[in-house]
Nucleic acid binder design. Structure first.
Length: 361
DNA sequence: AAAGCGGGGAC
DNA sequence: GTCCCAGCTTT
């Protein structure tokens, strides 16, 4: 595909369509829980922006409500335990978001006296806050003239300016950031950024853009060229490997043996049933060996109690679950291994599909 | 620059 | 099945 720069004439580059978008926004603005009130609470904007990373509005809505119920302000979140924070986030995905937000809120509480900083330099230092989130908080909560370039903005601009290069490349993101800066109204940056999000989610959608309802067709170079469904261009994803996982649910005196995953990596710090990578007899033997090293001799029933296929963005877990009972021994005291009373299963943050296993047994 | 990191809804 | 979402961090 031919690319971009050559097609853009100078007068089109500077064409000023922001007022048209803002006019559309006036009547089509989505009512969302984090958009209530004329003055926007920086903490609420922050939480919503973190939750919305790579996550659709409808998936966030219940989590946001429940989160604000439990952690209504910065002090409440700063005081919470990591397990409780992860428990609130359980099921939303990308759990480093929760851990980073927790740590960053604690820093805001201790370093900034509980006030979210209002400069790009300071806010970018907070864990989990990158270019996009910094721009979103500064513009929406503080009215600063910052851009917030996310997936919606990349798609919208790729179409408006007929940019045929991979929108995920650093150079295209840089180019679009410059185009957005030239477009942003100094006094209504927050509205402009939110308008772009709503526009991207409702009109300039990925597959079949609703050009018949679009207020910006007069400005859209992709539409003019009949290329609106071919843009934007995205990098194709590679094959995702499958891992066979053997899980053994070990019960003893109405308790389950659970293990907390390492504090880095996939599903960090969340709880799981004893498991290993591997399947069949070898998988079962490996789990028994693992538990033996923890001081427990366990017998495992040969018949599996179920299977789960769990798809991540970069790998697939093909899990087979077995039931086990303690024959002898005592669990070696370690913080990451615990006996969990069965009725307390809602109190720990479960690692992905492991939460479902509680229902199977 | 590329890979790691979740889960779900739309098609 | 595929696509991709109000991305950030680490390598």
């Amino acid at each position: 595909m031919k690319c971009n720069h050559d097609h853009i004439k100078p007068e089109e580059k500077t064409e000023h369509w922001a007022p048209v978008l803002l006019q559309w926004f006036r009547t089509h603005r989505r009512e969302l829980p984090w958009r209530c009130g004329s003055r926007r609470d920086p903490y609420k904007v922050w939480v919503s922006e973190i939750m919305l990373q790579q996550t659709k509005v409808e998936a966030v809505r219940p989590y946001y409500d429940s989160w604000m119920d439990r952690f209504p302000d910065i002090p409440a979140l700063a005081e919470a335990s990591q397990d409780e924070v992860l428990r609130q986030w359980q099921g939303l995905g990308y759990y480093s978001r929760a851990r980073n937000l927790h740590a960053a809120v604690q820093e805001v509480q201790s370093v900034y006296g509980g006030s979210v900083p209002d400069t790009k330099k300071e806010i970018l230092k907070l864990k989990g806050v990158g270019d996009y989130t910094a721009g979103a908080i500064l513009s929406i909560a503080y009215g600063k003239p910052e851009v917030a370039v996310d997936g919606n903005v990349l798609r919208v601009f790729a179409r408006l300016y007929r940019i045929g290069d991979n929108i995920l490349s650093a150079s295209v993101k840089q180019q679009i950031t410059a185009l957005a800066k030239a477009q942003i109204p100094a006094d209504r940056a927050g509205d402009f950024n939110e308008a772009l999000m709503d526009f991207g989610a409702m009109i300039c959608i990925p597959k079949h853009p609703r050009c018949e309802a679009c207020p910006l067709t007069a400005y859209c170079q992709a539409r003019r060229a009949g290329m609106e469904t071919e843009l934007p261009v995205r990098l194709t994803k590679k094959h995702v490997p499958t891992e066979n996982i053997t899980v053994v649910a070990v019960t003893d005196a109405a308790r389950w043996l659970i293990h907390r995953r390492p504090d880095k990596g996939l599903l960090a710090s969340m709880w799981e049933f004893p498991n290993v990578i591997g399947s069949g007899e070898a998988g079962i033997r490996a789990v028994r060996d693992l538990l033996q090293r923890m001081g427990l001799t366990v017998s495992v029933k040969a018949a599996p109690i179920g299977t789960i296929k769990h798809v991540f963005s970069h790998k697939i877990w093909q899990m087979t679950m077995y039931k086990g009972t303690v024959v002898s021994g005592k669990l070696i005291e370690k913080e990451e291994w615990q006996w969990l009373p069965c009725q307390a299963y809602t109190t720990v943050p479960w690692a992905g599909p492991h939460g479902k296993i509680t229902a199977m047994i």
